[in-house]
């Protein structure tokens, strides 16, 4: 009897000890950082920028791998089946994880994604070629009003940030433009530079990458992007458009609250590094700091905004 009690208490102690260990979450080896897209896009490049800082600050490798398919859906559908020990994280993108589950059963739900940090966004921007006749946003609006539908604009994908921005802007400006979806930003930019379309719905990152080859007519930010002091915001020009594609990171749902907090702190620390911020800004990104605590409120606001936009645009039933 006594023996049994001792055994029981030993077992109980062991359980307490292991819980204590997990409570004190830490990263014990290389971390797998899954990007649910192919290489070369904004998701990949921002992850690659984080890589060396993670190694510097926390002493472990951040191993980036690609799991493309279904516009990211293949990756996100597998996320919650992965090990939640904190050694595996996955990039997430807005509006994708809001629009996709609202359109069809894609194997995951927006609420089911255990997001813990949104670390940047790429503000929407209208981009034209350097030799385009459109010198200002007004030139484009005038042309689109005079020739409804004839102004072609490339963008990345359908029901995407670019597409939603195009629909929203057309409505605000009272114009009719034609949106041409391409496979990723790279292909949309190629079409712009090749003169296949008259303008592109892209991001500030396009302006940073293409430099003098392109001109941005307006950016969807509260204030002008430090890299482009001469490019006006939509707000300045009288259009209430602020936003773009938001990117963050999620853990499998099974991760403990401590692990989630640890990760939120780590990514926050990288985001606070002045050198990292500078590199991101040089790439045309805009910084964002939504941590684990603020995630619920942030997501709720975005879900409302995007679903309303998508419904108005006729992208949802």
């Amino acid at each position: 009897m006594l023996r049994r009690t001792i055994l029981k208490s030993v077992a109980a102690a062991a359980i307490v000890a292991t819980t204590a260990l997990t409570a004190n979450a830490e990263i014990t080896g290389p971390v797998s950082y899954i990007i649910p897209f192919g290489p070369g896009g904004e998701s990949d490049i921002s992850a690659r920028l984080q890589q060396p800082f993670f190694k510097d600050k926390f002493g472990q490798e951040l191993v980036v791998s690609y799991q493309p398919g279904g516009g990211g859906a293949v990756g996100w559908a597998t996320l919650n089946g992965l090990n939640g020990d904190g050694q595996t994280i996955m990039g997430i993108n807005l509006p994708h994880i809001i629009i996709q589950p609202a359109q069809k059963d894609v194997g995951y739900t927006t609420e089911g994604v255990n997001a813990f940090y949104m670390f940047h966004f790429t503000p929407d921007a209208i981009v034209v070629k350097a030799d385009s006749p459109y010198q200002s946003l007004q030139d484009l609006i005038d042309d689109a009003k005079a020739n409804p539908g004839a102004v072609t604009m490339s963008g990345s994908g359908k029901a995407s940030a670019n597409h939603l921005a195009q629909i929203k802007f057309d409505k605000m400006a009272g114009t009719t433009t034609t949106y041409v979806p391409f496979k990723g930003t790279g292909a949309a930019v190629t079409a712009l530079l090749g003169g296949q379309v008259k303008a592109e719905w892209g991001y500030t990152t396009v302006g940073a990458k293409q430099g003098d080859a392109v001109r941005m007519l307006a950016v969807a930010m509260e204030e002008r992007h430090p890299l482009f002091p001469d490019v006006p915001t939509f707000k300045e020009l009288g259009f209430d458009m602020v936003g773009g594609a938001y990117r963050g990171i999620a853990l499998p749902a099974s991760a403990s609250a401590e692990t989630r907090q640890l990760w939120s702190d780590m990514i926050g620390e990288i985001n606070a590094d002045p050198e990292f911020r500078q590199k991101m800004l040089d790439g045309g990104f805009a910084m964002l700091d939504v941590d684990a605590a603020g995630m619920e409120a942030f997501m709720k606001a975005r879900v409302e905004e995007y679903l309303a936009d998508a419904r108005e645009a006729g992208l949802l039933q």
């Binding site: 192919g38 290489p39 070369g40 896009g41 990949d44 490049i45 690659r48 920028l49 890589q51 060396p52 790279g186 990458k209 293409q210 430099g211 003098d212 080859a213 590199k279 790439g283």
Partner: peptide, 16 residues
């Protein structure tokens, strides 16, 4: 595309 990402991290700006 992967190499392009590595270039950006290295601080090499591709383009014209």
């Amino acid at each position: 595309a992967v190499i392009l990402g590595a270039l950006l991290v290295q601080g090499v700006r591709t383009g014209p």
